[in-house]
Write a protein that binds this DNA or RNA. Structure first.
Ligand SMILES: [Mn+2]
Ligand SMILES: [Mn+2]
Length: 318
DNA sequence: TACCTTA
DNA sequence: TAAGGTAACCCATAT
DNA sequence: ATATGG
């Protein structure tokens, strides 16, 4: 049976958008369609946009749903509407990429119609492209590790940060791990923020080698939680908060309170897939936990000597 | 998803 | 006309 | 040098 006029024209923020194949199923197991994705992005816009402002994007697109082929996209295609904001980067080999900037509802809706399920913003803004405005502690459970282990390691990260006079903001990755954002003044280059997180990782592995690991070789991670500091290097990105994942039940990466994660006594802490695309109302009803981040950038100046030994300008002298 | 290239 | 291809990175680290 | 992982 063929669905009739599976398309609609909508007006978003003064822009006319042609939406296509609205009934196409993107998450077969959950029965969620492109219409659902568009509705989600439209509604979540006020929560999401602050985290995308001035941040060039990498997209992951799934035009035939999460069980079919995907592709990454950085360069804005020529067929994109001319009102889209872009940021031009010319690499050494003079290749040019026009990165997309998503700074309004209309752009989000257009992206969703393109079946761009995931948005991965830079950790730096176009104001200071080489200086990230946050570092991320990316906690990835290896096979055999449980989410409780991830939470345990996250708790150690929290205490360690407190020890260093810093504050971190946790979110569910939406897959199986946790991302802890550490807002910074945009004055430390990527190399250094990566080194900083690597230092945190070393301390935690030293303190808890049973469950934390730095091993780059998957085989040596066994049932442990991998502290992936390399995720902070230039060109790497992490899925933005409030972005859905291309996994069976459309779980969403959602900021959480430390107290929701680390539950004392008999209660059950928040679980990795507690929020899905279908839970848009629940997600919107939660406080915007990450928004204060940008009002509270932090300094690494005092603790830099602990991990930046011989860093300086970064290059080898000879 | 949309476009381009090739048969 | 239709089928097939393309749409991104790359480097820190280990061996 | 080459492989690996994310
Ligand atoms: Mn991760
Ligand atoms: Mn990772």
């Amino acid at each position: 049976m063929k669905m009739k006029a599976d398309r609609h024209t909508v007006l978003v923020g003064g822009k006319r958008l042609e939406l296509s194949r609205l009934n196409k199923v993107l998450w077969p197991e959950a029965g969620l369609t492109k219409a659902d994705l568009i509705a989600y992005y439209w509604q979540i816009a006020p929560r999401l946009l602050p985290h995308l402002y001035k941040r060039p994007l990498t997209l992951t697109r799934y035009p035939d749903g999460i069980e079919e082929g995907m592709f990454y996209q950085k360069d804005t295609p020529s067929y994109a509407p001319d009102w889209l904001k872009t940021y031009r980067v010319v690499s050494d080999d003079s290749r040019e990429i026009r990165y997309l900037l998503a700074e309004d509802e209309a752009t989000l809706v257009w992206l969703a119609n393109q079946a761009a399920i995931e948005l991965h913003p830079w950790m730096s803004t176009t104001d200071h492209p080489d200086y990230p405005s946050y570092a991320v502690v990316d906690l990835d459970p290896a096979t055999g590790a449980e989410f409780g282990d991830v939470v345990e390691i996250a708790g150690l990260v929290r205490v360690l940060l407190q020890e260093l006079g810093l504050k971190g903001y946790p979110k569910l990755s939406g897959a199986s791990g946790i991302h802890i954002y550490i807002p910074l003044w945009p004055r430390y280059p990527y190399r250094l923020t990566s080194r900083f997180v690597g230092y945190l990782g070393e301390l935690i592995v030293k303190a808890y080698p049973q469950k934390a690991t730095n091993e780059r070789l998957v085989a040596k991670r066994d049932g442990k939680v991998y502290i992936d500091h390399l995720q902070n290097l230039p060109g790497k990105t992490i899925v933005a908060p409030y972005v859905p994942r291309p996994l069976p039940h459309a779980p969403v990466s959602v900021p959480v309170e430390w107290e929701e994660l680390i539950v004392t006594g008999s209660g059950r802490g928040v679980q990795p897939h507690d929020f899905t695309l279908a839970d848009i109302k629940v997600i919107l009803a939660r406080p915007p936990l990450f928004e204060q981040m940008y009002q509270a950038p932090q300094s690494l100046d005092k603790i830099m000597p602990l991990f930046a030994a011989g860093e300086k300008e970064g290059q080898k002298v000879h």
